[in-house]
Design a protein around this nucleic acid. Sequence first.
DNA 1: TTCTGATGTTAGTCAATCCTAACATATTGT
DNA 2: ACAATATGTTAGGATTGACTAACATCAGAA
Lengths: 129, 129
Amino acid sequence: MRTEKPLTRSSQDYLEAILNLSEREQNVRITDLANHLQVTKPSATGMVKAMSRQGLLQHDKYGPIQLTEEGAKQAHLVRQRHRALKDFLVHLLGVPHKTAEKEACLMEHSISMDTSERLYLFLQENLTK
Amino acid sequence: MRTEKPLTRSSQDYLEAILNLSEREQNVRITDLANHLQVTKPSATGMVKAMSRQGLLQHDKYGPIQLTEEGAKQAHLVRQRHRALKDFLVHLLGVPHKTAEKEACLMEHSISMDTSERLYLFLQENLTK
DNA sequence: TTCTGATGTTAGTCAATCCTAACATATTGT
DNA sequence: ACAATATGTTAGGATTGACTAACATCAGAA
């Protein structure tokens, strides 16, 4: 079930979206996911299917979507990177929220967890102003 | 000739590589480009062909590659983003050079020029330590 | 129960970008 | 000039992830 294949940018986006949605809804549905990510339902269906095969999530036909333990772990890491980046953009660079959200979404796939942690520490030291 | 189509990540990478190579060599050749970007020659040929159609560069069969005015302009913008990001990673976050180079290469496609300029200013203010 | 509307799935297609294998052209050395 | 080598191109294919159109299933209302 487990795959050693590195996560694609899109997979990471899907993982993060499922994590965020699952904290607000009992069941994450394909339509929710598609709307959230601004893709069509067939696209979401296809990606969910692929990610299910990779052991990142559990999804029965027509049923709700649930992250596996591994999927949830990876989702949390993506979100961690996202938050550090967004905080930096908003609070240190003064980027408007919407722009920062969008750019953090793109950047989160581009940095290592090491860099993310360094950024987090940097923010700790510099957000005391 | 001019295209309004947004530049793909890959196109941006190719533009930046051509710019950097053209500053070191009289002629940029497919093989140079392919080696630099760690892709095969047919891949580079194909991308160069596509980008030529988009008016980003000039390339005659078997001949050297040259950026058009528009291509060069875009390449400089990519590089600007790259440098701001790399400087930030290295000098403020203490990321090792190789890692910073790699991550800047990925991040440069994810931020706007506005954010890049904000980052540049932030670096100016904070690199005086 | 049946019908309607909402939700979800399947199949086919496209774009982008990479690869390999085979071939074409240019360059260099003898 | 010819042969060998280097460089570059073409054709075909794979992966990823998006789209549309058609179809299937589910849930709720009548």
